[in-house]
Design a protein around this nucleic acid. Structure first.
Lengths: 343, 343
DNA sequence: CTGTTAGCGCTTTCAG
DNA sequence: CTGAAAGCGCTAACAG
């Protein structure tokens, strides 16, 4: 019942024999070498077909010194990796580009950074995309002197081409919008403050407020934990700590914002009349939240696309920008649209 | 500024030279061959270290006829593939198992099934996991006679080890529960009715109702489209078509259920008092929906784990079950808990 | 236009 | 215990 007498895979030699040519001719025909007589080429192709022949990518790679595989390493301190929808989107973008270039995607969500170097030095991949900021500096340093091209996504490091989102700008845009809406008592909620992206968003938020002469109280910044109700917990803490509740809240991401909204409403405050609320991400549900959630959007898929595109450029021997910063875009919805205009 | 004078990667020959041994000895030392003098082994290992040497996976694979790569092909008629959280979970499970076995995951979301056969015949992977039911029968037939092990996930095919979820059971469980709750006018909503899993759920639902002497009207089955509001549209259609609104609704998945809930509430009906509602999936938000959503849960990650586990077994030459059916579990929450007991 | 041949870097007999 | 040599399947000179 097992796979007993299966014929061993055909090799280029079998094809040559059947087509009554030399193996070099087979190779040439397969590589679209112009110097092959049409009749010969046809015979070869027929033989391949008949034998179900496909070149061994291993042998070919060994000879050519390339695999057509691209490593994608996802490094995240906080997650079951691929389960994080953020990374899923990024990978989607990567895949899109690689597929167009006939490259294969070797996915690796390594716990230990050392494995990353191993991956690179084994010759299993032609290039490497490192996604996320959970990589130790020493690893990145070694990657910098690796023999194959490396591109960083959602993480920046001197000497390695990097594609990032302007998370600071996200914070500044949120601040600007909340200031314009008349906010005076600001707050920031997040699931955690370890995530560098969240910190950057907070940083931009705080900076923009300061520049406008406003102030973000220390007691108005809270992290509520990485479970689904992190935003809720954070918001509750802030409401408990502050004498007067805030009237302008920026959440590090949309889930936190939605969850924080529950705490605000539970306290009997209205959104946006009493509290204006802005998140980040523009996840699908944001538009269908009650009330529809204002947010700062950026192109997650584009992160993957750019990174993959640059890697392909590097593989082709071309130069690429050292740092690419993708913009963010404020999306105003009802959760922060109290006083500004009709509707 | 480009990578000019980078030393070419060290080979086993460089190591041999530096350790003052033959290349065979290096190979043996690296493969933990017992017949190597400890002192020699140490010298070899030192030399490797010093040279930053790693065996070429290509050369090794060519010799050994294996790559340690496992192909994961996601076939879905309806999706940006990896963006579908369902598949993301499955991949998470696969990854978990493969990482433990030191295999690499080659991700491939092929549009054309033919590419799948190519992948298999190129020798790029040692085995293949095919996820989802978007694969043509003829492709599966060819896969059945492929030279390497193939395991199907969330899809079943005679002659290929398959791991599936009992979607019919999900439908039956929902029916049983809604019947027990006193439902009399049943309805089914989905985003589409092409998805074989959705059809199986409907099928189980319908069958169980029939067996209980209840009836599912044709006008009470609707698909509303694959956008976010598919359930809403479907529910509206049913409410428009039926004279009396249904009092027991089964949705093909949780998003459809949530979306359908909006339509029910918009119509002025209460959940669960007027309409009991059950979904499938138990996505995160289900528990925090208003009202909390009853649903049928199954282990998505486990699908991936089982499939990957079986593939590893096959690679080790062991036999595996032809068909594995993962169970589903009813989770009762407020959306269907009108009359049955306190609270 | 086509065939012969030499490796790519590794593992594995087969001899020492 | 260790080394020399063959060869995995392919490509790319180098000759015809």
């Amino acid at each position: 019942m097992a796979a007993v007498g299966r014929p061993p895979r055909a090799t280029i030699r079998d094809v040559a024999e059947r087509a009554r040519v030399g193996i070099a001719t087979v190779s040439r025909a397969l590589n679209d070498d112009p110097g092959v007589a049409p009749a010969t080429r046809a015979r070869v192709l027929d033989a391949c077909e008949a034998l179900g022949f496909r070149r061994s990518s291993l042998a070919r790679g060994l000879k050519l010194g390339a695999t057509d595989n691209i490593g994608v390493a996802i490094m995240s301190r906080h997650a079951p990796v691929i389960l994080n929808p953020f990374y899923a989107e990024v990978i989607g973008g990567i895949e899109e580009v690689l597929e167009g270039a006939d490259k294969h995607l070797l996915l690796s969500s390594l716990k230990r950074g050392g494995d990353l170097l191993a991956l690179v030095n084994e010759g299993r991949v032609d290039g490497l995309l490192v996604v996320g900021c959970g990589v130790a500096h020493e690893i990145l340093e070694q990657l910098r002197s690796a023999a194959l091209p490396v591109v960083l996504i959602d993480n920046a490091f001197e000497g390695l081409p990097s594609v990032v989102v302007d998370h600071q700008a996200a914070g500044r845009q949120a601040a600007g919008h909340l200031l314009a809406g008349g906010g005076t008592r600001f707050a920031f909620v997040a699931e955690n403050l370890d995530n560098p992206n969240f910190r950057a968003r907070l940083d931009g938020f705080r900076t923009a407020l300061r520049e406008a002469g406003a102030h973000l109280d220390d007691g108005a910044v809270a992290a509520g934990g990485d479970s689904w109700d992190g935003g809720f917990v954070a918001m509750q803490r802030i409401l408990g700590q502050l004498g007067t509740p805030p009237d302008a809240v920026f959440a590090a991401n949309d889930p936190a914002a939605m969850s924080a909204a529950k705490a605000v409403l539970a306290r009997g405050l209205r959104i946006p009349e009493d509290v204006a609320l802005v998140g980040v991400d523009d996840i699908h549900l944001a538009a269908h939240h009650a009330p529809p959630l204002s947010t700062v959007r950026f192109d997650k898929r584009g992160l993957g696309r750019s990174g993959a595109g640059y890697l392909l450029e590097r593989l082709a021997g071309r130069d690429v920008p050292a740092l690419t910063v993708l913009p963010t875009e404020l999306v105003v919805r009802a959760s922060s649209r109290s006083g500004d205009g009709p509707r």
